[in-house]
């Protein structure tokens, strides 16, 4: 019986290693199609993606992939645009550069909803048009860190409200498996 147990154990370990290696290969292939860190910009409002705010979408690109970094500001969108996608949720919109984000739209949608539900607009009801960009990083565990105001609106009250919305959200669900990099950098634009 000892011999059979050994054979069986070896077989099980072999199958596990095989599956591990096979899925590792698959993962590597997927990784090669995808930049390690992608930047996401989230826009408030309902204007279409091809709208006026397009030239302003200047991303801090930390990705090693050159797809999005060769984007030149001010150029019209229809001349070789990077694949851009806009998702909307809860009154906020997220613009994602690079087709690689397609796999985890649901995650960004969820992030938008969480943050939007925590955001209390100090000027709700007023017709003011201001904009603040808050940058932060989502760790793999979903923890939000490195929160800072990137482009202030000049209005401290509004800036603080945006910062607060992100800070009190504190933790998001863990990053989805489709996103393989250890952290996801987000540029979230609050606009009204």
């Amino acid at each position: 019986m000892k011999r059979e147990l050994l054979i069986s154990f070896a077989g099980h370990i072999g199958i596990l290693i095989f599956i591990g290696i096979a899925s590792g290969f698959r993962q590597q292939r997927r990784d090669s199609l995808r930049p390690s860190i992608i930047t996401v910009q989230i826009l408030r409002g309902h204007e279409p993606a091809t709208g006026k705010s397009e030239p302003a979408t200047q991303l801090l690109q930390t990705s090693p992939k050159p797809v999005t970094s060769k984007k030149t500001p001010g150029k019209p969108k229809n001349t070789s645009p990077p694949k851009t996608e806009v998702i909307r949720g809860a009154g906020l919109g997220a613009r994602i550069e690079g087709a690689s984000a397609l796999g985890y739209n649901f995650y960004l949608q969820q992030m938008l909803e969480r943050i939007a539900s925590n955001w209390q607009d100090p000027y709700s009801g007023n017709a003011r048009n201001i904009k603040t960009t808050v940058a932060f990083v989502i760790e793999r565990s979903g923890l939000i860190s490195d929160i800072k105001i990137e482009n202030g609106s000049g209005d401290p009250l509004f800036d603080e409200s945006c910062l607060r919305a992100v800070i009190i959200t504190k933790k998001l669900p863990p990053l989805p498996d489709e996103f393989t990099a250890p952290r996801l950098k987000i540029h979230l634009e609050f606009e009204r």
């Binding site: 147990l5 069986s8 154990f9 099980h12 599956i19 591990g20 290696i21 899925s23 590792g24 698959r26 993962q27 590597q28 863990p174 498996d177 393989t180």
Partner: peptide, 28 residues
């Protein structure tokens, strides 16, 4: 590497891990 396959096993928590180990032994 192998994250997509083994991630559920690693995220499973202690209780599930114990059950997985028992099942593994049963299988062997």
């Amino acid at each position: 590497a192998g994250q997509s396959f083994f991630a559920p096993f690693l995220n499973a928590g202690l209780f599930a891990l114990i059950i997985l180990i028992i099942l593994f032994l049963m299988s062997i």
